[in-house]
């Protein structure tokens, strides 16, 4: 009798463990994105059409002009580059959105695949040649972020410029340069 009870319990525990393992890993296989973005829509959505992906989540203030059909050139009429954080899109939008606004499609970096993989720096430099990037930011104060004494011009773009998450100032681990990272 006792043995039978034990066996039942053991089988029950095993079942739970099994379910946990199977279901647990299932969760990892299909991560839900933050802010409930419907990923299946993102490929064909227009870059300025926030609701196409973000659905009911409000991403822009009520006072913002309609962006649905706006190309990047339209954005920078108000968000004037080089006029500080408040005046530009820099640091406000994830990199992928700026790419999309400039009509760079997902497949241009990820390739035409069912399951897109993270993009390596070798892909970035096909458009953003390190020498050019370093030249472009040569006058950024207090130091050129694209030509450091540590990594020269070869620091991985993705240390700072994340495409599907908020970008970060990697230098800030040790320095207070307060770079605005697009």
């Amino acid at each position: 009798m006792k043995n039978k009870n034990t066996l039942t319990l053991i089988l029950f525990v095993s079942l739970i463990l099994f379910l946990l393992a199977a279901f647990g890993s299932g969760l990892y296989a299909q991560p839900k994105t933050k802010s409930g973005v419907d990923k299946s829509k993102t490929v064909e959505a227009k870059a300025g059409d926030c609701a196409a992906c973000h659905k009911d989540t409000k991403k822009l203030p009520d006072s913002h002009v309609a962006t649905k059909d706006m190309p990047y050139d339209g954005c920078v009429v108000c968000h004037i580059p080089g006029e500080g954080n408040a005046g530009t899109l820099r640091g406000k939008l994830p990199g992928s959105h700026i790419h999309a606004l400039k009509d760079v499609k997902c497949a241009q970096c990820h390739g035409k695949v069912k399951k897109p993989e993270p993009v390596q720096m070798s892909q970035c430099v096909t458009c953003h040649a390190p020498d050019n990037v370093a030249k472009k930011t040569a006058n950024v104060k207090p130091n050129n972020p694209h030509d450091s004494p540590h990594y020269g011009k070869s620091a991985d773009c993705n240390l700072c410029h994340h495409q599907h998450a908020k970008s970060e100032d990697y230098c800030a681990q040790c320095h207070s340069y307060k770079f605005i990272v697009p």
């Binding site: 034990t6 066996l7 053991i10 095993s14 463990l17 099994f18 199977a22």
Partner: peptide, 26 residues
């Protein structure tokens, strides 16, 4: 008693392969 019987040795011996697979997976 239950705790005692749930030692690793008994666990594997009595519950057989299903439990072993579940254990490994988890």
């Amino acid at each position: 008693q239950t705790d005692k019987r749930l030692s690793r040795r008994n666990f594997l011996k009595t519950a057989g392969s299903a439990a072993a697979v579940a254990g490994l997976a988890a």
